[in-house]
Every structure is written in structure tokens, then in C-alpha cells.
């Protein structure tokens, strides 16, 4: 049943957020450290295991894929509730700082990606 997939997804999210909260408290920071990341890893491992054992039905999978397909619309809704007005009226410093940090970040994407890509090329033996 589709709800099984949704329930597995929920379980992964709770365990992940719990781990993130624990890690945050452990490190003494007032934030969830990597909770969503842990949840994602858990979902990958768990669904991989269940599919390997042929336990996860197509319907259960559809419960997860539905939410995955809803992702972009949810992002649109998320964009619609950002404080865009404050960002624009926050003055030139906020705007310039926001733009420059992004541009500097982009400069480094190809540089650091090369570290990961080396292995990729070897694997594909080009």
C-alpha cells in the first residue's frame, strides 16, 4: 500500500532529524546539524535493502515517488513565502554581500569538483 512508503519516508525523516538535533546539542550549537542529510542517507540505505529483499511493493514505492514529484511545487510555495521585501529593502550591503558570496562560490565549484571527478573518469576508463 502507498501509505507504507509514506510511513517509511516519515520514519527516516524523524530518525534523521533526531540525529541532527542530538549532534547539534552535542556540539553545543542551537541548530539541527545535518538532520535532513542523515534522513536522506537512511532512506537510500533502507529502500535499497527492502528492494533487494523484494519487500517494497510498487505501490509503496509510489508513496515515496509522489512526494518526490511534489518537490518542485513545494519549492515554488517556499519561494512565495520568502521575505523578498526585506531582502530588497535591507540596503545595498545585504544585497551586495548576498550576490558576491554566490559568485565566489560558483568560481570554486569546477575547481573542487575536479577532485571528485578524477575517480569518475578512472571508473569509466575513458
Amino acid at each position: 500500500m502507498a501509505i507504507y512508503g509514506v510511513a517509511i519516508l516519515s520514519l527516516c525523516m524523524f530518525i534523521g532529524i533526531f540525529l541532527g538535533d542530538v549532534l547539534g546539542t552535542f556540539l553545543g550549537v542551537a541548530a539541527n546539524v545535518g538532520g535532513v542529510g542523515f534522513a536522506m542517507l537512511l532512506l537510500i540505505v533502507l529502500t535499497d535493502y527492502l528492494m533487494g529483499k523484494d519487500i517494497l511493493s510498487k505501490l509503496a514505492e509510489s508513496g515515496i515517488s509522489f512526494w518526490s514529484a511534489m518537490y518542485i511545487p513545494i519549492v515554488v510555495a517556499m519561494a512565495a513565502q520568502q521575505d523578498v521585501l526585506a531582502a530588497i529593502t535591507g540596503g545595498p550591503l545585504a544585497i551586495i554581500a548576498g550576490i558576491v558570496t554566490v559568485l565566489v562560490g560558483f568560481l570554486f565549484v569546477p575547481l573542487i569538483s575536479k577532485i571528485g571527478n578524477k575517480t569518475t573518469y578512472k571508473d569509466h576508463a575513458i
Binding site: 534522513a39 532512506l43 529502500t47 515515496i64 519549492v75
Partner: peptide, 12 residues
């Protein structure tokens, strides 16, 4: 948002 982000990991 978090729920949907986690779900995208399915298939990664």
C-alpha cells in the same frame, strides 16, 4: 519542504 527533500533521495 524537508519531507519532500528527503523523498528525493529515493533513487539516488
Amino acid at each position: 519542504r524537508d519531507f519532500a527533500i528527503v523523498s528525493t533521495a529515493f533513487g539516488a
